[in-house]
Design a protein around this nucleic acid. Sequence first.
DNA 1: ATGAAAGCGCTAACAT
DNA 2: ATGTTAGCGCTTTCAT
Lengths: 345, 345
Amino acid sequence: MAGGGVTDGGMTRVARPTMNDVARLAGVSLKTVSRVVNGEGYIASATAARVEAAIAQIGYRRNEIARRMRPGQESTDLGLLIGDLRNPFFGGVAAAVIAAAHAGGYGVMIASVDEDPTAERHAVEGLISRQVAGLLLVAGGEDFGFLADEIGLGTPVVFLDRPAAGLEADEVVLANEAGAREGTEHLLAGGFTRIAIIVAASRHSTGERLRGYRNAISAALGEVDESLIVQLDKGSAEEAEAAARTLLAAPNPPDAVFATTGFVTLGLLRALDGRTDIGIVGFDDLPLADMLPVPVTVLSSEPTELGTLGVRTLFDRIDGDTTPPRHHEIQPRLVVRSSGRPRSP
Amino acid sequence: MAGGGVTDGGMTRVARPTMNDVARLAGVSLKTVSRVVNGEGYIASATAARVEAAIAQIGYRRNEIARRMRPGQESTDLGLLIGDLRNPFFGGVAAAVIAAAHAGGYGVMIASVDEDPTAERHAVEGLISRQVAGLLLVAGGEDFGFLADEIGLGTPVVFLDRPAAGLEADEVVLANEAGAREGTEHLLAGGFTRIAIIVAASRHSTGERLRGYRNAISAALGEVDESLIVQLDKGSAEEAEAAARTLLAAPNPPDAVFATTGFVTLGLLRALDGRTDIGIVGFDDLPLADMLPVPVTVLSSEPTELGTLGVRTLFDRIDGDTTPPRHHEIQPRLVVRSSGRPRSP
DNA sequence: ATGAAAGCGCTAACAT
DNA sequence: ATGTTAGCGCTTTCAT
C-alpha cells in the first residue's frame, strides 16, 4: 500500500520548479534567487523584482527538505509523541503544542502511540530520523535511556505529563500528589467519610495520586481502610465501571469515590446508573462534566499549560540553554462543581 | 524565540553519525552500508554483520531528510490540515488519520488552523514545502485553486469533511442533507411539530443540513415556518446558547430543536437550564452525551471513517491512481438516545 | 558481491 | 550587488 513505484498512469511526472529554474528564467544566478527568497544581503530592486516575477510565474516554493540538509541549518519541525487524540486530555495537549510551535515558526510532526513501549520507541526513532529540532514526549515507556545519545547529539527532549524514565531530561509534569490530596480533602470537607479510590494502571502517575489520597485520609481519619483502595489493571473505562459496581455492591460500601483518571471517572459515572448519593472527585476534566445530572468536580490536568510550557522549555534548549535538566510542576486546578458536596435528599 | 544561533554554551556540537562514518568503521564502502540499511542487493553475511555492528556501535540512524532529496524518492510523510484538536470531531479525525498513516508506514505533519483562510493557505504551503507525499485537508477556505498546480506536480490532495472549494479534487464528505433529514424525521416521528433549527456559520456544510431539515419539514408538515430557522454568525457555543434562549423565550416557542453542529448542541443544552421538555437532535456526537439528564440523540459524523477513508484515497493516489477525482460520501449515523422522543411528564 | 562517481536543491564561504 | 564553488547525506547509475 502506497509503497508502489512511480507508475504514473503513463504520464510523465512533472518536476517541481527549483531555484535553478527561477534563476534561468530571471537571468540571474542561483545565489541571487536564494538571496531574494531569504531576504538576505543587498540586491538591486530591479533584480529582486525580476526574480519575484519569475517565482510567481513558475510557482516556485522553497524546498524545506533541501534547505535542512545544510549543516547548521536547524530543522523547523518539532516532534510530538502522544497517545490517542480522542482522549480529550491528549487532544488538549496536542492543540496547545501545535499552537505554541506555530507561534514560534515551527511545524509539528506527530506520532500517536498508546501504551506500547516498543511502538513508542519506534515512533520516537521515526521522529528523530526526520531530523526534528526537538522532541516532546507524552510517553509511558519504562526506559528512555536510548535517548541520552540523541540529546548529547543536540536534539533536546522534553517529557510531558509523565516523568523522564531512565534518563535525566527536562520534564513538565503535574503535581499529582498535591492535586489528589486536595481532591480528597474536598470530599472530606464535604462530610464524606468512607472515601474509596479507584487507581488506574500504575504506568500513569497514579502512584503519586494514590499517595496524595493516603496522606489526606490518614491526616483526617487517622488510618486508611485498604479495602477502599481498588487497583485497576489497564485502567479502561470498562474496567473501572466493573470495579465500581463491585465496590458499590459491597457490604460496607463507600459514600464517595476518588477517580484517578478521566477514563476511571467515566466508568464510575456509568456504574452509578443514575444514583446521586455518592460523592465524586475525578482527576482530569471531562467535556460536558458540568452538564451531567450531578456536575462532576474534578482536578483539571491543565493540558494547555502543559503543552505551552513544554514547547517553551524546548525552545529554550533549541536556543542553546545548557543548564541542567529542569523539572517543572504544574498545579492541577480543582474545579468545584457539585459532586463533591453532600447531597440534600 | 528558538531562532537563535548554534551557541552551545561553549560545547562543540557533536555531529550525528552518517553512513560514511559507519562505512569507515566497518571498513567497507558507503554504498555497502546503504545496501545493508535498505536490505537491498546481495551482500555477504559477514560484511552485513560487520556493518550492523558498526551501526549499533555508533548509534547510526538513517537521515530521512537526506534520503528524501533524491529525485523519485517519495517522502513518507502525509500532511494534515485540521482545526482545533480540542474539538472532539477533529480529534477523532486526526486520530484516525494518524493511525491509518502509521499502518501504511507514513508519518504525519500536522498543521492546525481554525477558520482563517489566510492562515490556512500559509499552513498548506508550509506542508507542501516540506515535500509531503500527500495532503489531507479539513479546511474552510473558499478557494483552493492555488493547489491545482501542486496536484499537477504530483502531490495528491484529499479534502475531508468539507468539499474541495475552487478546484477538482478528491473529497470525502458527509451526506449532510440526508443526515439532517433523517434527524429531523426522527423528531417528527417523536411527535414534535414545532421543530426549530439553529444553523451554525455557513462556512460549514450547514447549508446542506438546513436543506435536509427543510425537506423533512415540508414533506411532513407542508410548509416551513421561517421564524423557526435561526442562522448564527460564527457558530460558537456561546452564540448558540444566546440564540437558543431567545428562541425558547419567544411567544410561540418551538417544542424541539435541531442543532447543526456539536458546538450548537452544547450551547442549546446550556440554554435549556435543566428543562427536559424540548426535543433535541444534534449533528456531531458529543462525549458523555449518553450520560446527560436527557441523553442526546445525535447524528454521528463518523470521524474515524472519514479519516480512514481519506488516507486510503490518498494512498491510492500516491500509488499512481490517475482516475478522475472521486467524491466519497459517508452516511452520518443516527444514534438514538432519548432526547428525540416525547417526554412523559 | 562490492565500489566510485555523480547529483538531488539548497546555503555558506569566498570571490568579483 | 552578484556570481562560483563546494558540499550536506543519501541513492542511483555504472563499473568491477
